[in-house]
Design a protein around this nucleic acid. Structure first.
Lengths: 329, 329
DNA sequence: GCCGATGATGCAATCCTTTGCAGGATTTGC
DNA sequence: GCAAATCCTGCAAAGGATTGCATCATCGGC
């Protein structure tokens, strides 16, 4: 059906080798010849057969991306970033979703590993040891998780939590609650650590409400505990949960931010649409995806420094309407 | 690195051909031999090299999926359905997103076509003619769009709109507004057609508010037109827009459903979480994805009946809190 | 106990591209 | 003007699996 390299070669009056070189290593072939080859290729609509190329080079030109749950608006943004960057580099992306099942991750990695040059694990929930083992056998990049000696892109949660605390403190809050995400999430651990440090430094009291599912319902479930704890402000693991908090607080007749200030993390699209609009720590999600691809391509080039590669992304406080002066009573 | 078919053959004391047959066509090889081969393969952790297989069979074992916008919660659900079904059939899925740019679709199809056995176009915005042309050169399945002579899976919008109208009529509504999605969307055309028929049959008046972007903001933008038209009820192109409507109506101090009833379409996860919770026409989104894969695999098997294949999925009214008795004034 | 049919297996070609090596042509240096 | 260096191109092997065809063994029928 499609043109092969031999046909292009015949059309251009050269050998297949020359065609191959002219197309993938232009500088080593004579300019005139190259021109002839390129034109012939264009005329015939030639595109190299990926399977044949992969067979000899051992590369597929594909990347894999595994996320916990596409239905969480955080991840589609990351996916978009990965897509965009991968396309620029002429890679295609396999996407998989684990439905928040940590035990599914390793299996997916192993299946996908055979069909890709490298994998991006976004917010993986599996234990460090397991991931480190997987990284031994496949080029692997972490996105939104930091694992020592595994290439990782992650957000500066410490600074993010510092900004959140500074904001709340400026509004007169003394007591803040934390509504955590899944126990298996690195972000939740990293963020609560940052929050502990920041509140301690600011002389504020931190109430940890525990771990909840990273869904709207998780926020709903956490709301009553938060209220009962008597804090004047609360930070949630992500925006979706913060929206759940908002919803339950409203149902209970509480005013936000009058009675309690609510902050999220992520800056998903919907968070600007709620009422009150959600104050949040904004994360550059597409950027996370793009950076992960960058790292992955880098370690594919130079596998020897895979253990060194790492990248930290900044966070940005975004003040909207769900935070306000602490109530005084 | 990984075991090849020759090593398995040596280990099992047979020829590579026999290994190949034992693994991919078990019934034509002697049971004892097969057993020996399978065990040897297992021992060596053998998995066929996909590139080599693809080179000779001309198949990649990959499918492609193109959606307009992953950030719209409708699509992640479809993606999940596609993933699940594809994995069952041992296919991997390439995902791409056009960012609602109709002109990007054809290009993506052409790029992806070379790397997959078949493509699923979900809710494509391109003109029929363009898609029909693409379908000539690549196995293609439409999801959520119906195109004559191109295999398609779609929802029974006519019946969905009939259910919506019956519901509103039962609540005493006489005038209903329609807030449309993108002009290029087949669904919006099909739904307004269904709505026209249903309202006419019920003796109700339909006000078409026009076309809006399929985002929250689109619903916000449409709200004032809807109010000005004096209807007592409104149906939006999708849930996200319906949520936008809800938001703007509330901001204007209107009561839903007291002043106006609001319905969406899709039944995205968030629509049960709004206040008031959104009445909607529920669509089986994962089902759409699964059915599309089914169709695609079927036409890969028997390309000759590609023009005949088609599947219609039912819709289901889901009554929640955003619809109520028509105001009487 | 022999012949034909049937079943199981191996041989070898094939898919298409890339790349190490060699050789021919041209240029450079002296 | 000749040897050496440089540049460009072609040859041929390799990569791993699949499959049409041929071969061989076995079995059943008579």
């Amino acid at each position: 059906m499609r043109a092969t390299i031999r046909e292009v070669a015949r059309e251009a009056g050269v050998s297949p080798s020359t065609v191959s070189r002219a197309l993938s290593n232009p500088e080593i072939v004579n300019a005139a010849t190259r021109e002839r080859v390129v034109r012939a290729a264009q005329r015939l609509g030639y595109a190299p057969n990926r399977a044949a190329r992969g067979l000899i080079t051992g590369r597929t030109g594909n990347l894999g991306l595994i996320v916990p749950d596409l239905a969480n608006p955080f991840f589609p943004s990351v996916v978009k970033g990965v897509q965009a960057k991968a396309r620029e580099a002429d890679y295609a992306v396999f996407l998989s979703d684990t439905d928040e099942d940590p035990s599914a991750e390793a299996g997916l990695v192993r299946i996908l590993a055979k069909q890709v040059d490298g994998l991006i694990l976004c917010s993986p929930r599996a234990p460090e040891e397991e991931i480190r083992a997987l990284a031994e056998s496949t080029p692997l990049v972490m996105a939104n998780r930091r694992i020592r000696n595994v290439p990782s892109v992650f957000f500066d949660n410490t600074d993010g939590m510092r900004q959140a605390v500074a904001h709340l403190r400026a509004l007169g809050h003394q007591r803040v609650a934390w509504v955590g995400g899944p126990r298996t999430s690195w972000s939740t651990r990293d963020r609560v650590r940052g929050l502990r440090a920041a509140t301690a430094a600011a002389g504020m009291e931190l109430v940890v409400a525990g771990h909840f599912p990273p869904y709207f319902e998780g926020g709903v479930a956490a709301a009553d505990l938060v209220v009962a704890s008597g804090v004047t402000s609360v930070v949630a693991y992500n925006d979706v949960m913060a929206l759940g908090l908002l919803s339950r607080l409203r149902d209970r007749g509480l005013d936000v931010p009058g009675d309690i200030s609510v902050m999220g993390i992520d800056d998903i699209h919907m968070s600007g649409m709620s009422s009150p609009a959600l104050t949040t720590i904004s994360l550059t999600k597409e950027q996370l995806g793009r950076a992960a691809v960058d790292l992955l391509l880098a370690i594919l080039e130079r596998p020897e420094d895979a253990r060194k590669v790492r990248r930290e992304l900044p966070t940005q406080l975004l003040v909207r309407a769900s935070t306000g002066l602490a109530r005084t009573n």
